[in-house]
């Protein structure tokens, strides 16, 4: 029995630990402040946020999986270019699939769909985790970071869409509408300045909670 097999042996506890870590303790957006560009750009509606979140989860799972498989034969010298090629391939596949089967989402995400390539979260997870850990935990890690990112996007886009339009529309269906806001919406929240304000307040809130806990 060598160390390899021992390491590869599946531990459910560790799997869930890696998964939960990315969602809460090291939430990519609110705690690590990574992947800011899409976080602000596509959160004008919950629909876009869900699309972007699903895309990032797909790419993270794919790239973490492949990079973990080839981690022992990848030469350190060309490590980063290899990661970039793997990530860019998954992003291209995602982009082609979205264009073919979900054209409205493809159009509303625009250049932010290909820009997933330079999302620091994905390259970060490849470098820090997947290139050093067994496949199964790399998948858990990717899923955790991806879900953490998606949850952050959903919170931000929910606040922006509800305040900015007074209603919530998902998959073309209106879920609810708030009487006063929908007749005279606070459009500023849909526009860029509103994105910055919402993020600033959410970050301050996360900090305040942290400060109160420590005291």
């Amino acid at each position: 029995m060598n160390m390899e097999e021992l390491e590869e042996r599946f531990s459910a506890k560790k799997f869930w630990k890696e998964l939960a870590k990315g969602i809460i303790l090291t939430n990519p957006v609110f705690v690590l402040v990574l992947g800011l560009c899409p976080t602000l750009a596509v959160t004008t509606s919950v629909n876009n946020a869900l699309g972007m979140g699903a895309g990032v989860i797909f790419v993270l799972l794919g790239s973490n999986f492949i990079i973990s498989i080839i981690r022992k034969i990848t030469p350190g010298m060309v490590r980063i270019p290899v990661f970039i090629v793997v990530i860019a391939s998954f992003v291209t596949i995602l982009s082609l699939v979205f264009e073919a089967y979900l054209p409205p989402l493809y159009e509303s995400l625009g250049i932010y769909l290909p820009l997933i390539v330079v999302n620091c979260i994905i390259l970060g997870r490849a470098e820090v985790f997947a290139s050093k850990n067994p496949i199964i935990y790399s998948i858990a890690d990717g899923l955790g970071a991806g879900l953490g990112f998606t949850i952050a996007l959903i919170i931000i886009s929910f606040l922006r869409e509800v305040l900015g339009t007074g209603s919530l529309v998902i998959f073309g269906k209106q879920l609810f509408s708030i009487p006063v806001i929908s007749t005279s919406p606070l459009s500023i929240f849909i526009m860029p300045p509103g994105a910055f304000i919402i993020i600033a307040l959410l970050m301050a809130l996360f900090r305040l909670i942290g400060v109160l806990k420590n005291e």
Binding site: V33, I188, M191, P192, P193, G194, A195, F196, I197, I199, A200, L201, M203, A204, L205, R207, L208, V211
Partner: peptide, 23 residues
């Protein structure tokens, strides 16, 4: 600056005001 707004949060608020001005 209030403790919980120090650093990044206040920087985002500044960015928001700049963005408003540039509109």
């Amino acid at each position: 600056t209030p403790k919980s707004m120090k650093g990044l949060p206040i920087a985002f608020i500044i960015a928001s005001l700049l963005s408003l001005a540039f509109m």
